[in-house]
Simulated assay, not measured.
Amino acid sequence: MTTVRLPDADRTFRSHRLGDPRTWDVGPFTSRVAFAAAHVVADPFGGNAPGAPARLDWDATLAYREHLWAHGFGVAEAMDTAQRGVGLDWATALELIRRSASLAASGTGRRLVAGVGTDHDTADPLTAYREQLADVVEAGARPVLMCSRKLAAAARGPEDYLKVYSALLEEVDRPVVLHWLGTAFDPALEGYWGSSDVGEATGHFLDLVRAHAGKVDGVKVSLLDAAHEVGLRRALPEGVRCYTGDDFAYPELVAGDEVGHSDALLGVLDAIAPAASTALRLLDAGDVPRYHEVLEPTAALSRHVFGAPTFHYKTGVVFLAWVCGFQDAFTMVGGMQSARDVVHLGEVLRLADLAGLLPDPELAATRWARLLDVLT
């Protein structure tokens, strides 16, 4: 077995012995719909400084989508996990959506949704949404209407949100996913849907969904409040899915209760795909205890990766992809690899090992030792 050194906040080190690699099943699952919000692989020689245009390693980025599809997941493209709004500019995001859509069309059963926002050079939120929506539909992906910082800044009440979203839903020719991202992920979205009171905002949100239920495939809720999500999904019109975005409580929300369950559109699925895929096939078979047995260690990892400040979770996701050998460099667009410290990353490594998510422990140990030498 391979031993690694893990740093503590008091500047001491402790030893941790990595477990043997675990073999996971590969294949589809049927009882839940699950999309992994996929990260992007930055070109380590491409600049990628804060504020600079994103430069991607396209081969590695697209290969990771193949990895997710192979484990049965749909890909949620150009979402916040891909650093949308924190380094991934719209021009690069659109190229990413087009390339992923082309790749999805080359295989069977490859689900793809893609983020539609307002993060390009257009002042009016509705016009910006329309422009991106047209591009995503043309590319062949199902649109996800993401929350808009521009709309949040411009709106004066719930009627402004309902006006913009109603116009989009009336015009679109296919069902979309509505995305409600909480302030833990983006503080600029305070008061979304017209109120800082979550209960009141939920009422406005449900008014929109009920008025346009035929154009809403589902809603993705990322408020990190499991009880609220359960209440919301029970209030949704029949046929509208609730895609959990709760990276803390996803095992119980996806398992569901006597009334129903959540499907999933999660950033953490990028990092835990082999284990999560295996767990969902256990759920297909009705083996709920084993489902939880497999997923609970991943939830411990996820709670750490998505710990406050939650919006820096992407650093842990990319770090895991690097130590697992899915990319050659621990580099992110916007230089965001520096957003988490070495103590945090050491705990990511330990928890990933306990969850059985290191396919090559020796490679993980080698890469970790290199990083530790630089950062300590």
Results as ranks from 00 to 15, higher is better:
Leu103Pro: 02
Ala104Ile: 04
Ala104Gly: 12
Ala105Glu: 11
Ser106Gln: 13
Ser106Gly: 12
Gly107Tyr: 02
Gly109Arg: 12
Arg110Asn: 10
Arg110His: 14
Arg111Trp: 09
Ala114Ile: 10
Gly115Asn: 06
Gly115Thr: 09
Val116Pro: 01
Val116Thr: 02
Val116Lys: 01
Thr118Leu: 05
Thr118Ser: 07
Asp119His: 15
Asp119Trp: 15
His120Leu: 13
Asp121Pro: 02
Asp121Gly: 12
Thr122Val: 15
Ala123Pro: 03
Ala123Val: 14
Ala123Arg: 15
Ala123Tyr: 12
Asp124Gln: 09
Asp124Cys: 11
Asp124His: 08
Pro125His: 03
Leu126Ile: 10
Thr127Val: 13
Thr127Ser: 13
Ala128Phe: 05
Arg130Asn: 06
Arg130His: 06
Glu131Leu: 12
Gln132Pro: 05
Gln132Ile: 02
Gln132Glu: 11
Ala134Met: 02
Ala134Ile: 00
Glu138Ile: 04
Glu138Val: 11
Ala139Met: 06
Ala139Asn: 07
Gly140Met: 11
Gly140Trp: 10
Ala141Gly: 11
Ala141Met: 10
Arg142Ala: 05
Pro143Thr: 11
Pro143Tyr: 10
Val144Pro: 03
Leu145Lys: 08
Leu145Pro: 04
Leu145Gln: 11
Ser148His: 12
Arg149Leu: 08
Arg149Ser: 12
Lys150Pro: 08
Lys150Met: 08
Lys150Arg: 15
Lys150His: 05
Leu151Lys: 06
Leu151Ile: 10
Leu151Asn: 04
Ala153Asp: 08
Ala153Gly: 06
Ala153His: 09
Ala155His: 05
Arg156Val: 03
